[in-house]
Amino acid sequence: MFRRRPAAPRKAPAKTLIVLGSGGHTAEMLTLMDSMDKSLYSPRTYVVAATDPMSAPKALVRERLWQKTDTPVGVSLLQIPRSREVGQSYVTSVATTLYSLIFAFSLVLVERPELVRGMVAVLGLTSTQIVYVESIARTRRFSLSAKLLYHLRLADLLFVQWEQLAKTYPRAVYAGRLY
């Protein structure tokens, strides 16, 4: 549960879990995936909230585009409870976010991916590398998920998309904005 050093050079593709956080967050994650070498990050499992009917179809549309076929291969889907609904109070948000964390943690244990990235916190005890991309909407303050991951030191790479935010959180990485 600590930040791992970069992995040793490898050639075999890495099984990847991609957590889609709904709405604008899903769009950001798929924009990042547009630019990744899909042959290196394969097979891919998309994790979506049970309360979010929009994200899985969007991911499928992209996979069809990337793989240039109507029936993409090496792609699967998993559902988790949503950590927080828009408008939910902060106190109950902490509870449901923790619940989602535990659920997502169990996914890592079951799925054993080599890379997890997304907008929702996922814990890993295995050799899984964890990448978290803080939303572009977070310019000055962390989201609850980012706070948990940062202070518990659970992400191997925690990207922020605004330089000023990396100054507040020195272990976060600013490597440009997706848009």
Binding site: P6, L32, D34, D37, S39, L157, A175, G176, L178
Partner: peptide, 23 residues
């Protein structure tokens, strides 16, 4: 902006240091 910086950092972290961007 551009995802290139994040992509390069993830590739390095994963042990794909020479990898480029995806198609």
């Amino acid at each position: 902006g551009s995802p290139a910086g994040m992509v390069a950092a993830i590739n390095r972290q994963m042990g794909f240091p020479g990898a480029g961007a995806g198609r």
